[in-house]
Nucleic acid binder design. Structure first.
Lengths: 119, 119
DNA sequence: GGTATAATAAACCAGATGGTTGTCGATAGA
DNA sequence: TCTATCGACAACCATCTGGTTTATTATACC
């Protein structure tokens, strides 16, 4: 169990590793969007944006519903939950480091008082 | 502000998108490790593992302290916090979908009762 | 000094990624 | 029906990724 063989997480983290794809996710968090709507704010051609949506689909972050000639996309957030749960298992680490920083700041504060009297 | 220009998040999510690198993070969550210790459980050559550690360093997820001939690596969790906070902004979406599933299950349950009497 | 060990560096490779342009099919609307 | 629009698809390209092998540097130990 040393290595984390989890292609689901691979795909989700990879999907989130590109600013355009994160932008798409945020757009979809507001509500359903067609491909052209998703593509228009991105500084790239339509086919490029379309590829990004496919990457998000592969990560199961986006569902596509074809309605006539337009493809309506919506967010599927559960893979985000998986990603968050993975990172959350290290919560105590960043909390610990902030606690350490707090302690340091406390100590600096405590030393500042006597030093200002000494000086 | 349409596109998410955040190279920090790019690097963090990209760093987490590979099973070997997630395995390294988990190893470091237990405590400090040298490069050879990090590489040994991975099914790849040492230089390959070393490259993965560099990717993690670029994402500021790993700090390296050189001690004689060995490089001691430790976890810097704060970028994980950033990644988690980004995903967390969509929490209500997956909670909503689970709420919807709950509702669905409730409805199915409610319909099951009369149907089992009908059958 | 001589040898084993920790790690880097460089060269190389196959395949993935991220983008483009151009062509095509299907649907909506005049 | 004709035209505009939404989108897929394919080809192409440069660059990045993830891995290898080989050689090299620097430290530790006998």
């Amino acid at each position: 169990m040393v290595v984390d063989r989890s292609p689901r997480l691979d795909r989700v983290f990879h999907a989130l590793a590109h600013p355009a794809r994160r932008a798409i996710v945020r757009q979809l968090s507001v509500g359903e969007r067609t491909l052209t709507e998703l593509a228009s704010p991105l500084k790239m051609t339509f086919p490029a944006a379309s590829k990004h949506v496919r990457v998000l689909e592969a990560a199961k972050l986006v569902r596509r519903r074809i309605a006539g000639r337009e493809h309506r996309c919506s967010l599927r957030a559960s893979p985000l939950k998986d990603a968050m749960q993975w990172t959350e298992q290290f919560r105590r680490h960043w909390e610990a480091s902030f606690a350490a920083l707090d302690t340091l700041l406390e100590e600096m504060k405590a030393q500042e008082q006597p030093r200002s009297r000494r000086d």
